[in-house]
Computed example of a mutant assay.
Amino acid sequence: MWYISALRGDSMPALHSIQAAFMHDVYSGEHTSAVYLDKSKSNSSERLNIYYNNTLLGLTDILAGAYPILQKIVGKGFFRTIAHHYIEIHSQSTGNRHTFGGELGAFLSLFQPAAPWPYLSDMAAIEWAYFQAAIAADALVTDFNSLTNLISERPNFVLLLHPGVHFVDLRFNALEIWQGHQKKEIESITLFENPQTVLVWRDQEDVVLLKKVSTSLKKLLVSCQEGESFAKAMLHVGDRLQDVQAFQQEFAQAVSMGVFINKDGN
């Protein structure tokens, strides 16, 4: 066998110790598990490198699939550098490849080589929300008639967000930059700080859309996400609501766009 139980005195290492060392090497490229290798195999370290390289290539491809615009901005070479450093400290925790890469935005905000591009963490947040919206489960949305009935019949009902709905807080005008990179000919875009919340969702035609939303609608979305009743969520919104009519129009648009489902999913 390639891996053997290396005796240390009268004791043998626990299986989880061998597994932990091997997984560490698979993601870091180190050879800490070499002490457990069959010494009769001269190419054991090379085999470890094969596992590491395959893991690195596979997970880098996953990240590139989830963050195509980010890769387009920084170039494939630097994107690989970002991916390799990210993978070293963020192992794939499940067998579902669609869950890998969600912390890249936070990682980029602290990744010193990316400091010349301070908006990259915003870009990553947009792309991850877009990716998750695209693969989210389907659900029946709430229309105005259903919502009106719920308000009159069940005042304490919970209005839930559609599984494809996400909202991201941005520091820069990253949405404009992201939209600009959807075009074949990328126009010059000036970077500036512009704090905003962007709603990302998949409509009933399976098209992922992005839209800036007000602080008031964000409050409602957060309350719905936390499972509060619709009545209580509206109270939170009303605390500092400046323009009632504008909020009503924005909320009505959100309903028509398929942002909400009710607790029963109908």
Rank of each mutant, 00 (worst) to 15 (best):
G238Q: 09
N194W: 12
A246R: 14
Q196D: 06
L241P: 08
D239H: 08
V207H: 03
V198Q: 04
K219Y: 03
L241C: 01
S216G: 11
E193K: 13
R240P: 00
R240V: 07
E187A: 14
T215S: 14
L220W: 04
A246I: 02
N194M: 09
R202K: 06
L191Q: 07
A252K: 04
T197I: 04
V200E: 06
M234K: 12
V213P: 00
R202N: 00
E185D: 15
E205V: 00
Q196V: 14
E250T: 08
G227F: 06
L221F: 10
N194K: 14
I189P: 07
C224E: 02
Q249D: 09
R202P: 02
V200H: 05
W178V: 01
T190S: 10
R240N: 13
V207T: 07
Q245T: 14
T197H: 10
Q249G: 01
N194G: 00
Q253F: 15
G227R: 09
I186A: 08
Q179P: 00
G227I: 07
E176A: 15
W178G: 00
A246C: 05
K232T: 14
K184D: 06
D206T: 10
M234N: 13
A252N: 15
A174Y: 06
R240A: 12
K211F: 05
Q225I: 03
K183E: 05
A233C: 01
I189F: 06
K183W: 05
L241T: 06
E176R: 13
L209A: 03
G238M: 03
E205N: 15
V222L: 14
S223C: 15
E250K: 08
E226N: 15
Q245H: 12
D243P: 12
G238I: 00
W178T: 00
F251D: 14
A233I: 12
I177A: 01
D243M: 03
V237R: 15
F230H: 14
S188Y: 05
L209T: 03
D203I: 11
Q242P: 01
L217Y: 05
K212M: 07
L241Y: 04
L191G: 00
W201K: 10
V207M: 11
P195V: 13
T190L: 13
Q249K: 10
E185H: 11
V200L: 05
L175Y: 03
L175K: 11
E205R: 08
Q225G: 14
G180M: 02
V208D: 00
L217R: 07
V237C: 06
Q196T: 03
M234I: 09
D206V: 04
M234D: 05
L220A: 07
D203K: 06
I186C: 11
T190Q: 12
D243Q: 08
L191D: 05
Q204C: 11
F192L: 10
Q225H: 12
K212A: 12
L220N: 02
S223V: 07
I189Y: 05
V198M: 06
F251P: 08
L191N: 13
L209G: 01
E250C: 11
D243T: 07
N173T: 06
S216W: 02
Q245R: 14
S214Q: 07
K211Y: 01
M234H: 10
V198N: 09
L191I: 10
S214E: 03
W178F: 13
K212F: 07
S188A: 15
S223K: 08
F247Y: 09
D203L: 12
D239S: 11
E228R: 14
V222C: 04
V207K: 09
D206Y: 04
T215Y: 08
H236Y: 13
L191H: 04
E185C: 09
I177N: 03
